[in-house]
Design a protein around this nucleic acid. Structure first.
Lengths: 234, 234
DNA sequence: CGAATATATCGAGTGGTATTCAGTTTGTCT
DNA sequence: AGACAAACTGAATACCACTCGATATATTCG
């Protein structure tokens, strides 16, 4: 009985190892050549299996690509959570700063992949799965923002998804802009100003007015006024 | 001589008409079936030419698609300029509101096309052209924002492209979110709150403090008080 | 163990489609 | 009109994702 179970286990492992090999090979070939440029034959050769074998694991080239994308997004989500776990500051603004830095870096490095995620919107069945993984990923933002609202850092009346759209939308679009800028000049790190701008924007627009800027100005002014009153009174 | 010139002219016209017919047919077939689903044979039949003829106008299916996309963006740019010409208000904020409304509507309706514009990033030669057309399109925003800075509505220290990234990035991402929301509920027009939010954000973050927010009202009052004190002191 | 059965793998073959090209039509010039 | 050029055509080609019958490998059971 026990030996039986072990054998079944190893067999399952073997299949899983093979599936992983296919996925790994597919990923590398897709990255190198894009979706259309990738040959199933090359993926098979790289994975060390016959072409037909791939089709006993994945129904089609598109579904294989989808599996690769899912793995990709899952990895991103995991790493994002890791990054956030490493940020000790409790302030939502600081946490968003860290998340934005991580995300922008990733988006720039994996622009092709991310574009493909959205470009694969044709066969609807495929897309729906991908959507879940995307939702997983953005939930990292969601948690931070909600907590920020709970802590009184962000105004409670804002809808979560509006803030999310501003956050991810700006970063994704910026990634494209940065690519263009980087192509033109030999610029090194034009990313920081983008993030600073976005974070300032969040503090301004979504933040409660406890922010130091205007408030401090007024209170300085109040101090001056009080001093002047003292002058008058003395 | 004269007749010669005329004949050359009509011949050229004929070619242009044929090219236009191909482009028109291609657009319709691409819209109906997507890039992969479109058959060159169907495009040829629709345009009323042989399959081979297409290849004397466009080198490949991808390049044909690119031509369609360029025409598409040019049309968008033209219409955006028309819309803006119809907006009489000089305030940059109001003009951005109109532009955002137009753009969001367009992005939602032509999501497939717009995705494809970015998805076609493979053969680099093709892409570069598309980039110019995109730049044309966003220049509508650029002019409004610059003018807003000149008029003192927007702070001059902000980089144009940061503002642009926030604007278009948020709208594009929102378009995707709205699609999801619309799929889920039978919601009618969830677009307005998105735009209101974006415009308020622009006023807050990029705007000069001439806005009459509560904070500023108090600070104006403080200014008046301080001035009166100065009067007393002098 | 070894036969019987089930499961996994393979790669040559199939079908479908973008692209080519030799032959044909259409237009132009003298 | 006849010679030359330009434009056009669709049958033939090339290329690939995907299928399927044959083969190898694992599992079950007498």
């Amino acid at each position: 009985m026990a030996s039986k179970a072990v054998q079944v286990e190893t067999q399952r492992d073997k299949l899983e190892r093979k599936e992983a090999a296919i996925l790994h090979a597919a990923r590398s070939v897709f990255v190198d050549n894009g979706f259309d440029g990738a040959r199933m034959s090359e993926i098979a050769k790289t994975a060390g299996v016959g072409e037909g074998t791939i089709y006993s694991y994945y129904e089609s080239k598109a579904e294989l690509m989808l599996a690769v994308l899912q793995q990709f997004w899952d990895g991103l989500t995991l790493e994002a959570r890791n990054v956030m776990a490493g940020v000790k500051a409790p302030e939502a603004i600081k946490r968003l700063d860290a998340l934005a830095t991580y995300h922008l870096e990733i988006v720039i490095r994996n622009a092709d992949f991310i574009n493909l995620s959205f470009a694969l919107r044709r066969n609807n069945s495929e897309v729906s799965v991908s959507r879940d993984h995307l939702r997983q990923y953005v939930s990292v933002f969601d948690e931070i923002f909600r907590r920020g609202q709970d802590r009184g850092e962000f105004r409670p009346e804002f809808l979560l998804w509006h803030a999310r759209d501003v956050f991810y939308g700006t970063l994704e679009y910026s990634a494209r802009s940065i690519e263009v800028v980087a192509d033109t000049k030999g610029n090194d790190r034009p990313q920081k100003p983008v993030i600073d701008n976005l974070i300032a924007l969040f503090a301004n627009h979504f933040g409660t007015s406890d922010q130091p800027s205007d408030m401090e100005k007024s209170s300085e002014q109040l101090n001056r006024i009080e001093a002047k009153l003292d002058q008058l009174l003395s």
